[in-house]
Design a protein around this nucleic acid. Structure first.
Lengths: 340, 340
DNA sequence: TCCCTTGGTTTGATCGTTCAAATAGTCGCT
DNA sequence: AGCGACTATTTGAACGATCAAACCAAGGGA
């Protein structure tokens, strides 16, 4: 393998110094147009590419962002993370950024990994997912002055507007409000909510979306709504069993909105295609079985994350977060076997 | 942010030169044990981490491998790629490697991206997935002497043993043989195969697994087997319709083995839980609906890929590929709604 | 004419590491 | 004692880029 050309080689061909070549690349406006053209021609001729590591060594920044691969890739909802990652990677390029992966066993381990990568100057910003109450990772990052953006808002009391914590999130409250309103408009009245036990930042937010819309427009009493409020940990089997128990307890409902596609699939397997079920995340599973779902616009989330990462620290005028509106995808399931 | 410690700082504390510190890190065996201990103490005391970019600049290698994120068009089966990526990332660490992502629109674009990353010395080896007949990517990589390993064997005639093309793959033939044999052992006889149209390297390999086992042990005639050999492009709806048409044509079968979980889910939605259906990939969907499936041991694939990447070029003794045995996961689906 | 500005370009130094060659220090052998 | 062989460690140089400061013309104003 022959030696790759350097700024020096390009300069030699264009008849300028190495620094001028560097300027053409990094601040073209300071170079006279005709010189610039000559240099660009030389770059094209030699097929020159700046050496990323050399640049990083000098500038002390890597233009690389780290993101942890979600460990629970095996669950249905893993696909949200994957699709987000895809959007992020796709768009990172246009911001001049690269994505580097890592894995971690738990939040403490994640902090250790982040520290390692940061100190090796491999990565200069991080994207965190799955934020939780009093997240130790964000505290640590703020404390150490390492830039980061989270997908998922901080769930502490005052944290939402903390300028040191930049975040992008999808408005789950609106998502469930939309789903519920759609069903009400279709004439359903007793709409159940199948979600996760409290406290759960994301989950409670989604529940409130359902509850607010129901209180506004369903005409059901608070007691009735309480009975339609089903709670269980995430999972297909869990969703199925919880709905079964509710039915056996004598609950009746016209439709179900859910905190996740896993729960929704469980519900759908239980009640069949005649009772509308709306999931959350619009995963491949929802597509596959033709189930309605609330879709998170992950492209928008990704571009929001990247924009916040690139934003200079000093820019205090702009708010440090983006709350993105989800969108309802309506489908008509045909789950019941149609044989014979 | 204060300046991070360098080899020089460590050397100062330990009372040795920078090179000795470097030696402790890279070839500890050349350093006298007591000196080594002193240096290691100093490293720990200062919390020193080598600066990755500086090292890369000097050594002219990045210890980073690039992998393209699959376009998410493939729906359900996308999770295979994701789980593979996860295993790869997890294990890369222990090989001292890092994973960098990129996306591309098509093989030509992928080559362009690879070229860019390689010339920037960002990445020094690539992992390719979804190999195809006469893959332009592998040809290009071989031609340019860029190290790579594919997940998926090369499908050309003589390519399987080409020492320049290192690969890891899962033995789909065995996978379908296992699935078919299991069903035969359970007493099923008329076992259909639902797969993709020929030519398809992976698909044809899997079909032969089914066919070989059926010819060996089912006692059915070739003509009967031909009628049980269903072919359609991947997809849930496609699988469902193909099975429906077969039934309407008068075909009868006791069980179905499939080339993918998407097809299998379609089949399952058509025939219901009383006819066994076995998918391929053991995706989250299969888990969710309780469908049997052939599982690819992605951890083994990942470690095989990494081992081959690390292997020095000269090592011609060892074969340049690994063929890994899949494993059958049996489940009992409960797809039919049990309401009422 | 002389000095000061301004825009464009070049030169010297540096980022943190490792390679290659040079330098001490030890030992054994004649 | 003197020499070569060997081991452990140090020194000089380089990897390829950018920062900061210096340089050089060309103009403009006094």
């Amino acid at each position: 393998m022959e030696r790759l050309p350097t700024v020096l080689d390009v300069g030699r061909v264009a008849g300028v110094s190495r620094q001028t070549v560097s300027n053409v690349l990094n601040s073209p406006e300071v170079v006279r147009p005709d010189t610039r053209a000559r240099v660009e021609a030389a770059i094209a001729e030699l097929g020159y590419r700046p050496h990323a590591s050399a640049r990083r060594l000098r500038t002390r920044r890597s233009s690389t962002i780290g993101i942890r691969l979600d460990p629970m890739a095996n669950g249905i909802s893993g696909s949200v993370h994957d699709r987000f990652l895809h959007s992020l990677t796709e768009q990172a390029d246009s911001f001049g950024l690269r994505i580097m992966l890592f894995t971690a066993l738990d939040p403490q381990d994640e902090i250790r990994q982040i520290r390692r990568m940061h100190e090796g100057s491999d990565v200069d910003a991080f994207v965190l997912t799955s934020t939780m109450f009093g997240d130790p990772r964000t505290e640590w990052l703020v404390e150490h002055g390492i830039p980061f953006v989270t997908f998922g808002r901080p769930w502490g009391i005052d944290d939402m507007n903390d300028p040191l914590h930049r975040w992008v999130d999808v408005d789950g409250h609106t998502g469930l409000r939309l789903a519920t309103a759609h069903l009400l408009a279709e004439g359903e009245r007793r709409i159940a909510y199948l979600g996760w036990p409290s406290p759960s930042g994301t989950g409670d937010d989604r529940r409130r979306g359902w509850r607010d819309e129901m209180e506004r427009a369903s005409g059901l009493s608070r007691e009735e709504l309480d009975r339609l409020d089903l709670r269980v940990d995430d999972g297909v089997a869990e969703g199925r069993e919880t709905v079964r128990e509710a039915i056996e307890r004598g609950s009746r409902f016209d439709a179900i909105v859910c905190a996740s596609d896993s729960l929704a699939l469980g519900a759908l397997l239980m009640v069949g295609p005649d009772i509308p079920v709306i999931g959350y995340d619009n995963t491949p599973v929802a597509q596959a079985v033709g189930m309605s779902s609330v879709e998170q616009p992950l492209d928008e989330v990704a571009s929001g994350v990247l924009a916040l990462i690139m934003r200079p620290e000093a820019d205090v005028d702009d708010i440090g977060h983006r709350l993105i509106e989800p969108r309802l995808v309506i489908r008509h399931p045909r789950l019941r076997p149609e044989l014979g």
